[in-house]
Design a protein around this nucleic acid. Structure first.
Length: 263
DNA sequence: ATCTATTCCTGGCTGC
DNA sequence: TGCAGCCAGGAATAGA
């Protein structure tokens, strides 16, 4: 499941291949993923030149000389460089040098072309990697729900998903059900510090490969080896040796240590 | 206005 | 061994 570190790893592994390249033609095969007219989209993309490859939160933004290519990997999306199209290839880009495949088994992701950047792209909050501590705390004041749900809300900050929400709350010693307004400034700042540290460490490990996440060269990440609570139900807490518990919160599997993480 | 529940998808796992 | 049924979850959408 690609979250900020995984998307950042993909962007880093693909950027140097794409910059300055011209799109020759595009094959699209999933209306679920593209949400648009395939003929018109392919037509618009053909001949376009790639100017920037950026990331905001979990969104990949590819600036073209005639618009924006917006890619969200969803749950199982992959961008693969110089791979042959396969059963789950939903979009395939022939460039003047090389080719880019968008594979996505479950089709939760998106590949969309816009002439004008949509509200969608700008509506997400500041990137989790660069949000300042004061801004993090100030923004937190706007939410009343459980802190785990707030962390997953992309309008609060963007880029955090289920894995890193659980890991950051564990590192900060905060129970995932804690109501946002009950979190003191000191604890909020501690959460901010731990979250950034975890995201940066994960990027250094090229992300977490839980099921099938890989970067554009097909490389797996290794941060899953450093997870403390995510997916560790009934295993020992590395800090207190108590058992990690799994509950469902905000419709998501949530892992935490009942002894180390307090409301 | 907020928060919560539902929906979309399919491979992989569990249990009979 | 086969297969039904459930699970994973990002984010739009609908409902409370």
């Amino acid at each position: 499941m690609p979250e900020l570190p995984e998307v950042e790893t993909v962007v880093r592994s693909i950027r140097h291949h794409l910059l300055g390249r011209r799109i020759i033609n595009v094959a699209l095969s999933s209306h679920r993923v593209t949400r648009g007219d395939h003929t018109l989209t392919a037509q618009a993309l053909s001949g376009a030149t790639i100017q920037h490859v950026r990331r905001q939160g979990k969104q990949i933004l590819i600036d073209l000389d005639n618009g924006l290519l917006y890619i969200h990997l969803g749950m199982t999306g992959k961008l693969l460089w110089n791979a042959e199209p396969g059963k789950y290839t939903r979009a395939f880009f022939h460039l003047d040098e090389g080719q880019l495949a968008y594979d996505d088994t479950r089709m939760f992701g998106r590949v969309e072309y816009f002439t004008v950047p949509p509200i969608l792209v700008s509506r997400v909050g500041p990137d989790a990697l660069t949000v300042s501590a004061p801004d993090f705390y100030a923004r937190l004041q706007k939410y009343r729900g459980a802190i785990k749900a707030v962390l997953l809300n992309q309008t609060f900050i963007s880029g955090v998903g289920n894995i890193y929400a659980d890991e950051a709350l564990f590192a900060a010693g905060i129970h995932p059900k804690t109501a946002a307004p009950r979190i003191s400034k000191a604890r909020a700042l501690r959460l901010h510090t731990h979250l950034l540290e975890i995201l940066k460490l994960s990027i250094e490990s090229k992300g977490s490969s839980i099921s099938d996440y890989v970067d554009s060269a097909g490389q797996r990440g290794s941060f899953q080896l450093l997870h403390n609570v995510y997916g560790k139900k009934d295993e020992q807490c590395p800090r207190c040796s108590g058992l990690i518990r799994r509950i469902v919160l905000a419709q998501r599997g949530t892992h935490y240590c009942p002894r180390c993480q307090r409301v």
